[in-house]
Design a protein around this nucleic acid. Structure first.
Lengths: 180, 180, 180, 180
DNA sequence: TATGAATGAGTTTTCATTCAT
DNA sequence: TATGAATGAAAACTCATTCAT
């Protein structure tokens, strides 16, 4: 039987998600995580080997959720071009909901060195999946077009975070439409 | 008479530049900075009000240096299209020299919340300057083209950091050429 | 099963009591407290939110202990006048045992500004309790007499600390006797 | 020729007076002193051997000024009893002007251990002078009366600081009057 | 599964003092 | 006389992790 709201493990993950995403990995202390999750300190280490393990769990869940959200948007359209447009709408939607905090993966990437091999891999895998996802929608297009759309998509995320503004998403959306 | 190599203040800034850029702001402790700079702890606070002040100094110097480097590359070409191509070559060059650590400003942006208003401003100002710089080169083009090149340029930086690979720069360079 | 001597929390409080009282609050560093208490630095913050919280705990325990000590002395006498005399004897006793360090509350008061509202309140409450305690013993006397005895009592504490000598207690004791 | 407002040495002393008195000796840092005095750090050590030397200078100047202020009040009256009353009025006046910060000497005493022999001596000497001053006014009274007035006088200072209220001065003033 | 206690090493910042000019 | 630069030690506090129960 499931717990009423969520079990400690999930509560830890949800809190870490919030904090790692919104204030950064290194800027977030274990103390804050357990406090906001409402669990004992040792309980964290019962479910997650280390802070980094928690980070990985966050990234993995985020990957699943984010890709699902993206798919929900692209599924509403039929043609490739419209699906791509819907993908940009997903970004707009995210920006609103998450106050322009940008891409969780690219943000963590900034705090990651080559020594954190595992983290780096998860981040790269996420982006490869995204790239493949967009590529599949555009399976009739040439590789150059696929890449072009992907790069505009990435810019849209990063630049709207930078300026705290939707214009990069809207502009990139138009540019992508022009390519198709 | 000038000091032999460099004075403590500059040494601190150079060390901070290295560390903040390569391993992140929050992941870098004051201890490491003073140790690698070879100065006493209190000397840091003699020259910089706080760790954040040192960060701002780093970003400001980086802005100047980076823009100068970019200009050096674009100055080697005559026509706008070639200048833009040279700009991408600057990115390639940076990637090599700096081991794909990407954009110092976007990296710090990832560690920045809206509470760090001053830092955010410096980052945004840097990008505005870059955007204006590219826009000036393309002064005969429509705004949409200017923006398009800018967004591809930004993607090139971020994605080559992500994949630790030059392909995004090379692809984006070709795409930009196609637009002009 | 109880701990052998005392648990870390109590040991911290006892050490803080000793140090805050004998060398002052600001002159006492956290380092010294944990060292003499034989606990790890972080353990202090496990039990006490901050140095000021530890100070408050010290004052509260001191209040309880001191008032109990006073009562123990006054309880040995039957009549009000004798009880007051016993109260002064308590001061003499304290001076001997604590090497003329005076009143813990007045000492901390000297290091307290209006910004430390909570500390100030604890100090004032202690003195109000003392005043009420003496007032109760002298419940048949007029308010002016109660106040007079209280002021002499306070002087006795402060001046014996100042001169490192019992004479102020002895003189004040006589003067109080003369009033009753 | 004197400097327009005051020379660095006096400015340091005045600033130290303000800070040591109002926020305590240990709570006051050299930084704050030189900053508020508007002198260079090294200039402090040019005029004063150490922080403690500055403290001694403060206490000595305070002694002179305070005793002069007291004399100014007692000089307005002719008879001993009235002079004593005027002395209490001086305390009231001080409380108003100095926001109930109490006695500079007793405050420093609280931060002083037996190791600070010199400081302790200055403090004791101040009080001895005060006691002698009041004793001289009451030269026709018995020693017990002199002491009694002195102890009430001291209480008045301490207790009005404690309660941030003039009542202890007013009450003690009446009590003293009753003794004469 | 869950937790409160405990910790050594770390954090950023300030201390009082001295030095070179 | 005056000062900006420099410093070792210390300040209060937090870090991520482990242990005993």
């Amino acid at each position: 039987m499931k717990k009423k709201i969520s079990d400690p493990k999930q509560r830890l993950l949800d809190t870490a998600t919030d904090l790692f995403y919104n204030q950064g990995y290194h800027a977030t202390g274990i103390n804050q995580v357990i406090q906001e999750a409402g669990v004992a300190r040792a309980s964290l280490y019962l479910h997650y080997e280390s802070k980094e393990t928690l980070l990985l769990a966050f990234l993995q869940q985020r990957h699943t959720d984010w890709m699902a959200g993206l798919k929900r948007f692209t599924d509403t359209a039929a043609k490739p071009k419209e699906k791509i447009q819907a993908a940009f709408d997903f970004l707009s939607d995210n920006n609103e909901k998450e106050h322009f905090r940008g891409c969780a993966f690219l943000n963590i990437l900034s705090e990651t060195t080559d020594r954190d091999a595992e983290v780096l891999t998860v981040i790269q895998d996420h982006k490869k999946d995204l790239r493949a996802f967009l590529g599949d929608i555009l399976h009739k297009e040439k590789q150059a077009v696929k890449d072009h759309v992907y790069l505009l998509f990435e810019s849209a995320i990063v630049e709207s975070q930078l300026y705290r503004n939707q214009w990069p998403v809207q502009e990139a959306k138009k540019m992508a439409a022009g390519l198709l």
